[in-house]
Design a protein around this nucleic acid. Structure first.
Lengths: 229, 229
DNA sequence: TAGATTGTTAATCGATTAACAATC
DNA sequence: TAGATTGTTAATCGATTAACAATC
């Protein structure tokens, strides 16, 4: 393995892995950089570059062995063993996450759920017990849990992050639309629907196709210059 | 406005906007690149560079006017007017999304929901009517809807994308863990929990802190070399 | 004026792309 | 051998960072 792997490469590995699994289901054993790139909308040069950075997987003139690559990626990404995970916040989003099958499939097992709503506390749903948020620290320390998922409002997200770190959690998946601050050695991944929506919105308003719509609709209110570019 | 705005800059705009709104709530009218950068974990140079790329907002020796910046960003991102949106898939995730308040706040209004489950069809939830998926095209064309949200399994995501494009939808927010292919002029944003989880998993297994844990646990099964680096 | 902070250019850094020799 | 495809280096492209003159 080479010294430093670029972040964009690392993030593409998930896509490679999933595509390879689908490819394998078709019964195919060897894949070329070209096939892999086409399926994922990348260039073949990029695929080769990425795999070259990780190690030595291919055979010149032949391609890459699908099984080898899959098992390497699984190990490399740390997906071989089950990870206990806590979920904080059992609103609409938390509920959906607890039932989301993708977690289990990737060996993330939500073992405890925390919320403030007394009506929920003590219930057992989808194999996880719902507990009072005040017990977060105690449980995480005792069970040595290292993964936490945050599905609380933006206003309390930073507080939950701080408490998670305090009790030994090292990796956090944050759904609150806020940039949370963490200390060294803690990794946070944020899923921010708001940002994605605004990204879409921006494109709708700045592509030529959409301009046509906009101008048609707002012809009177807008200055003529908006229809250009 | 300058010719080309880098994608990373565009994606940061959402964060700027939200931070500025919080800043404004405190009653503050002027913000410096330094304050803005600290709140978002960026460098002040980057903030100045980003804002410089967008236009001419600051006053040397003073800072940036918060109100001006907020209203510019709102307009620039196209958030001034309500956008009708359809949601396809009313499983756990779809349900959570329909109730998620962040959409409404950013003027994305889910007007129609589509699903195959006959028991749901005809119901009216949170202001949206649940309809049979086969009517997707008819409704989108008639209402001229341009935004679609996909909350169906990976296996049917591409088909729904194709049908959305066919009926005039231009921007798609995809939650299925798959790379979907679209034609020119269509923008897709994918929220992929699986990738985020694997990103976290990778970091847990490749940071020094986690290595200690791993080695302790797997001491016997692993070769000594895994504990280095 | 003196201090602060932006606007803007140039330097740096890092990722992607292109090209082709190596080799199956 | 001839054709295919990787491994690997160098060229290109683009974003970030640094620096400081302009100016409030």
């Amino acid at each position: 393995m080479k010294t430093k792997i670029p972040e964009p490469t690392l993030r593409r590995l998930s896509y490679y892995l999933r595509y390879l699994e689908r490819f394998k289901e078709k019964g195919l054993e060897i894949i070329s950089s070209k096939e892999l790139s086409k399926g994922l909308g990348l260039s073949d040069a990029q695929v080769r570059r990425d795999l070259f950075t990780l190690g030595d997987f291919g055979k010149r003139g032949v391609g890459y062995n699908v099984d080898n690559l899959i098992s390497f990626l699984n190990t490399f990404l740390g997906l071989d063993e089950t990870q206990s995970t806590v979920l904080v916040g059992y609103g609409n989003l938390g509920k959906a996450l607890l039932h989301y099958k993708g977690f289990k499939k990737r060996k993330f097992l939500i073992t405890h759920v925390f919320d403030n709503d007394e009506r929920l506390i003590g219930k057992r749903i989808a194999g996880a017990e719902i507990m009072d948020s005040k017990h977060l620290g105690k449980v995480c320390k005792k069970e040595m849990i290292k993964y936490g998922i945050i599905a609380v409002p933006a206003s309390s997200a930073q507080e939950i992050v701080d408490r998670m770190i305090e009790c030994g959690i090292k990796a956090i998946l944050n759904f609150a639309p806020i940039k949370v601050h963490v200390s060294d050695g803690i990794v946070v991944s944020s899923v921010d629907l708001t940002t994605e929506l605004e990204w879409l919105s921006y494109h709708m308003h700045h592509t030529k196709a959409s301009k046509k719509y906009k101008v048609k609709k707002d012809l009177i209110a807008r200055s003529p210059s908006t229809s250009s570019g």
